[in-house]
Simulated assay, not measured.
Amino acid sequence: MSKKLFILSLLVWAVGCFSHAVVAQPPRGPFVVSPQINSDKTVTFRYLAPSAKEVKLSGQFLKSPMEMVKDSIGIWSVTVSNIKPDIYPYSFQVDGVTVMDPANVSFFPNERFKASLVDVPDNPPLIHALQNVPHGTITYEYYPSVEGTTGSVVVYTPPNYDKDASKKYPVFYLISGTTDTEETFFKVGRTNLILDNLIAEGKAKPMIVVMPYGNPMAKIAEQKGRSKPADPTSRDGADAVNRAKLFEVDLVSNLIPYIEKNYRTLNNRENRAIGGFSRGGGQTLRTAFGNMDKFAWICCYSSYLSTSEMESNFKSITEKPENTNKQLKLFWIGVGDEDFLYKGTVEFMDYLKAKKVNYKSLITPGGHTWMNVKTYVAETAQLLFR
């Protein structure tokens, strides 16, 4: 074969391979931008679904789902105005099926529902906004947990943690709600950015924040090949109390020792706080009341314990209120006035007041939402370890 013929053959082979590679690539649809924060403070949401008959936008910034309109190439869109600046979960209802926004990488970590997140900014920036301040570090950790399983936890260390190997820090154990994961206080609550901003302003002491997964029974089931257990039918029934006890054992016996071995922590009750939202708030109260030698700071977000449970399991907290008040440097309770747990939380506060147990409280507008949780985290972080 001549040299020219050989080169020509190579070129034909290369073009053929390239053509085959191009043909083999999956087709790409139009590029979709969603959500889009506009200069007039409106927000545009888009979803590509050429074959869909109906698409609606659902979000915690809406009273009811909004109809979206399809353009000539199959992109559905709607523009929403007057959204109060904050972070909100949202999703699309496509012919009756709820889906996340595939154009958005920001999502709500949860065992049950999958929602995307939209961050509507404000000026000046909100406390959870990414700002030009020194930043802490987020680390994903795994630790030996109950029944031979491996537990998962997200850990925040404050700015400059790695610069001074001799400095030790107080620790805030922060527990998310039912069906939330260890990522929720980080990705939805933006606890790391709240702490960064407060520390930079001198409003909060540098601290380590430990965010565990609050459902060890699900972790056991997953790792041992069992079906995930359904949620308890009652917030203060025997099943819920037993699960909270399992979490308490894991936290006190496994997670705290792991954190104190692997991080530079101040290992006494005066430098250990515990807080949580919803189910995590109940776990907070049960764990703290059962381990008053471990925690001097309690932060309860949108949760409570019933009078019957207090009387049967934690009578020592109210029998000698002067001793409880002396032990606790902070007992803080927050709830929204539209929260479905508002009534029970207020009754809990009334019970504590009648028993002369001191606490600080904050009642905010709104419901059982992570918009409120961020407010509670920002408020309590300024009070801890003072």
Rank of each mutant, 00 (worst) to 15 (best):
Ile175Glu: 11
Gly177Val: 07
Gly177Leu: 14
Thr178Asn: 04
Thr179Ala: 12
Thr179Leu: 09
Thr179Gly: 05
Thr181Lys: 09
Glu182Leu: 14
Thr184Tyr: 09
Phe185Leu: 15
Phe186Asp: 13
Val188Trp: 10
Gly189Ser: 13
Gly189Pro: 14
Arg190Glu: 15
Thr191Lys: 03
Ile194Pro: 00
Leu195Ala: 10
Glu201Asn: 06
Lys203Ala: 03
Met207His: 02
Val209Asp: 02
Val210Glu: 05
Val210Thr: 01
Met211Tyr: 05
Pro212Met: 08
Pro212Cys: 10
Gly214Ala: 10
Asn215Gln: 10
Met217Asn: 05
Ile220Ser: 03
Glu222Pro: 00
Lys224Glu: 15
Lys224Asp: 08
Arg226Gln: 15
Arg226Pro: 00
Lys228Cys: 04
Lys228Asn: 14
Pro232Leu: 03
Thr233Arg: 12
Ser234Tyr: 13
Ser234Gln: 11
Gly237Tyr: 07
Val241Cys: 02
Val241Trp: 12
Asn242Gly: 02
Asn242Ala: 15
Arg243Cys: 00
Leu246Gln: 10
Asn254Trp: 04
Leu255Ala: 06
Tyr258Lys: 09
Glu260His: 14
Glu260Gln: 10
Lys261Ser: 15
Lys261Tyr: 11
Asn262Val: 08
Tyr263Cys: 10
Tyr263Asp: 10
Arg264Tyr: 14
Arg264Cys: 08
Thr265Arg: 07
Leu266Tyr: 09
Leu266Cys: 11
Leu266Ser: 09
Asn267Lys: 15
Asn267Trp: 12
Arg269Pro: 02
Asn271Leu: 13
Gly276Ile: 12
Gly276Phe: 09
Phe277Thr: 06
Phe277Pro: 01
Phe277Arg: 03
Arg279Trp: 05
Gly280Ile: 05
Gly282Asp: 00
Thr284Leu: 08
Arg286Leu: 00
Thr287Met: 12
Phe289Gly: 03
Asp293Gly: 07
Asp293Trp: 04
Lys294Met: 12
Ala296Gly: 01
Ala296Lys: 00
Trp297Lys: 02
Ile298Glu: 04
Cys299Gln: 11
Cys300Met: 08
Ser303Leu: 05
Ser303Glu: 08
Ser303Ala: 11
Leu305Ala: 04
Thr307Phe: 06
Glu309Gln: 14
Met310Trp: 07
